[in-house]
Amino acid sequence: MGTPTIEFIDLKAQRQHIGQAMDDAILRVVHEGNYILGPQVRQFESELAAYCGAKHAIGVANGTDALVLVLEAIGVGPGDAVICPSFTFAATAEVVAWMGATPVFAEIDDATFNIDPKGLAAALTTAKKNNLTPRALITVDLFGQSADYDPIEAFCAENGLVLIADSAQGFGARYKGRVVGSIGQFATTSFFPAKPLGCYGDGGAIFTDSDEHAALLRSLHFHGKGSYKYDNVRVGVNSRLDTLQAAVLIEKLKVFAEEIEKRQIVAGRYTEALKDVTVTPHVMPDCISTWAQYTIRVDAHRRDAFQAALKAKGVPTTVYYPKPLHQQTAYKHFPVAGNGLPISERVAQEVVALPMHPYLDVATQDYIIEAVREALNREASAA
């Protein structure tokens, strides 16, 4: 028996599951010819907002633009500070720097990898010591689990900070009865193909309950238009969700809840089978993750060998993220809260993501589990 071919994220299996409905949806757009802001865009925005309970959903070109547009809408600029985690993808801090503002990196929780509410006061103090005006906090719902929003919302309210939930990985997750996408003054998401709700290219969305901000965002993402597209009332950008992608997302949203349930089953089987040999993901009480990634922790000095052993068995793995942003060349000159971010630095050396998607069959799950256990036990014996 040869080495099996295992997909880290199997988009082809999802495509087969949705089937003819996707072909019909795409061809309908092609034949109708409304390729920019066709009716599918508003339909998807309406269904997306209803799914998470937000009043407004504005489709944009990608998840990074979603964050940029929110910062533009609230007027963040030079001299301002935006608190954010360092253990995340670059886009979270990148957008702050684009605006001429300063990201202030805060520590994460050791169990969830999300920004730690207990570290926010230190980040606020750091911003002020650097003569910056604290304006906003960007959380990240990392790997599919929401941040701990109750204390975060209280902190933002107490200190006059705008809460922006970067839900690129966590859209649709549950936090104490609330659906991610409806939490924060603003939430953003990405429809990059590998995301739990992904399209067939780039796409993103912004969520808000504010009528005023929704109108402003719709202007900003369409060249700053006023009453019509040649009435430019402000400087904007071109960041519209493509009609074809909206059509794809309408079909994917129909199976999204079902896919989240399937992800729970895969994650549950992983955790039950691996919790005695490694540190498995921690999900907070009364919360549901979308399991964008299933991330375990391996001793730093064993991680390379562990990944090599799995690769030899045909099991793909990925490290999200090998280096925190405050250690990256582009971001290491920005302020770091307190006396440093030791948890972020340690976690980056230990995390390993295993294959995760809704269509991972039981036999493949069992093969992955056996390979993981064998590799960990081998490394433990060699240590």
Results as ranks from 00 to 15, higher is better:
Met1Glu: 03
Gly2Tyr: 11
Gly2Ala: 06
Ile9Asp: 06
Lys12Val: 07
Ala13Leu: 08
Gln14Ser: 09
Ile18Gln: 01
Gly19Ile: 03
Gln20Asn: 12
Asp23Lys: 13
Asp24Tyr: 12
Leu27Gln: 13
Val29His: 13
Gly38Cys: 10
Val41Ile: 08
Val41Ala: 04
Phe44Met: 00
Ser46His: 14
Tyr51His: 01
Cys52Thr: 08
Ile58Ala: 08
Asn62Gly: 00
Ala66Arg: 04
Val68Asp: 10
Leu69Trp: 15
Leu69His: 14
Ala73Ile: 12
Ile74Lys: 13
Gly77Leu: 05
Ile83Val: 07
Ile83Asn: 02
Phe89Trp: 05
Trp98Asp: 02
Trp98His: 11
Gly100Val: 08
Val104Gly: 03
Phe105Gln: 01
Glu107Ile: 02
Asp110Arg: 14
Ile115Cys: 06
Ile115Ser: 11
Gly119Met: 00
Leu124Cys: 04
Leu124Tyr: 14
Leu132Lys: 15
Leu137Gly: 03
Thr139Lys: 02
Phe143Tyr: 06
Asp148Thr: 09
Asp150Phe: 12
Ala154His: 14
Ala154Ile: 08
Val162Asn: 02
Ile164Leu: 12
Lys176Leu: 06
Lys176Ile: 02
Phe186Gln: 02
Phe191Leu: 05
Lys195Ile: 09
Gly201Arg: 13
Asp202His: 15
Thr208Met: 11
Ala214Thr: 08
Leu216Arg: 09
Leu217Val: 00
Phe222Thr: 05
Phe222Met: 00
His223Trp: 04
Gly226Thr: 10
Ser239Phe: 14
Leu241Gly: 06
Leu241Ser: 10
Ile250Tyr: 09
Glu251Asn: 05
Lys252His: 10
Leu253Glu: 14
Lys254Pro: 06
Glu261Cys: 07
Ile265Trp: 12
Val266Phe: 07
Lys275Tyr: 12
Thr278Ser: 05
Thr280Asp: 09
Thr280Val: 10
Gln293Met: 12
His301Met: 03
Arg302Asn: 02
Asp304Met: 05
Ala305Gly: 07
Ala308Gln: 12
Tyr321Gln: 06
Lys323Cys: 10
Pro324Trp: 15
Leu325Trp: 15
Gln327Asn: 15
Lys332Pro: 01
His333Gly: 00
Phe334Pro: 00
Pro335Gly: 01
Ala337Trp: 07
Asn339Gln: 15
Leu341Trp: 11
Val347Asp: 07
Val347Gln: 13
Val352Arg: 05
Tyr367Val: 05
Ala371Gly: 07
Ala375Val: 13
Leu376Ser: 05
Arg378Gly: 05
Ala382His: 15
